[in-house]
Simulated assay, not measured.
Amino acid sequence: MLALLVFTCLFSTTAAAFNGYVEVTNNTGYDIHYLYVSPAHASDWEEDVLDQDILPNGHTVRVSVRKAKGSVYDIRAEDEDGDTYTLWDVDIARRDVTFTLDDID
């Protein structure tokens, strides 16, 4: 009985992991130099997913998420002038993101 319980717990933990992606489109009119995709309500932003790349205006990037605890994320972009655009509590399993000037912080 104990072995069955342990197996069930392990399986349910594995099954609960979220693997997916979000497509982020830049329609701000400016190049995005930094892009952060962090679990909702995390205390810090994750690493810049663009690394050394730039997301030009009018372009889209796909950001993969693996073995996450859930699919709800906070997403922040920073443009060439240092302006930030933040979307909170985005369920990336249900929708992609398009940043516009309306999203400026």
Rank of each mutant, 00 (worst) to 15 (best):
V37H: 06
D74A: 11
D83M: 12
L35S: 05
E23R: 14
L50P: 05
P56N: 11
D51W: 12
A3S: 07
P39A: 03
D48W: 09
A17Y: 09
T100K: 03
L4S: 07
R95C: 13
I75C: 03
L35T: 02
I92E: 00
V37W: 05
Y85A: 02
D31N: 15
L4C: 04
N26R: 02
R95S: 14
E78V: 15
T8A: 14
E46N: 13
V49W: 01
T100H: 04
D53L: 14
E78K: 15
Y85E: 02
L55Y: 10
N57Q: 04
I54W: 02
A40H: 10
R62K: 11
T8P: 00
A68Y: 03
E23A: 12
A15C: 10
D83K: 15
L2T: 04
Y30P: 00
T8M: 14
Y73N: 11
I104H: 01
D91C: 05
L35M: 10
V6G: 05
V49H: 01
D102M: 08
T60K: 02
K67L: 15
R76V: 12
F99G: 00
A3V: 14
L35G: 05
D89A: 11
L55I: 04
H33N: 15
C9V: 10
D91A: 11
D51F: 09
H41Q: 14
R94K: 15
S71C: 13
K67M: 13
L5P: 00
D51S: 13
S43T: 09
T13Q: 12
V90Q: 08
I75S: 03
D74Q: 12
D102F: 12
L55E: 02
D79L: 09
T28L: 08
R95F: 06
A77M: 01
E23S: 12
V65D: 05
V65H: 05
N27V: 01
K69G: 15
T8R: 13
T25N: 10
V22A: 07
Y73W: 13
I32Y: 04
L101F: 03
S71I: 01
V22Y: 10
R76I: 04
D83T: 12
A68S: 13
L4A: 08
F18A: 09
R95Q: 15
G20F: 03
T84K: 14
V6H: 10
G70P: 14
F7V: 13
T86I: 11
N26H: 04
S43C: 08
I92G: 04
I104F: 00
V37G: 00
D79K: 06
E80N: 12
G70E: 09
Y73D: 06
T14A: 08
T60C: 06
V37K: 03
E47P: 09
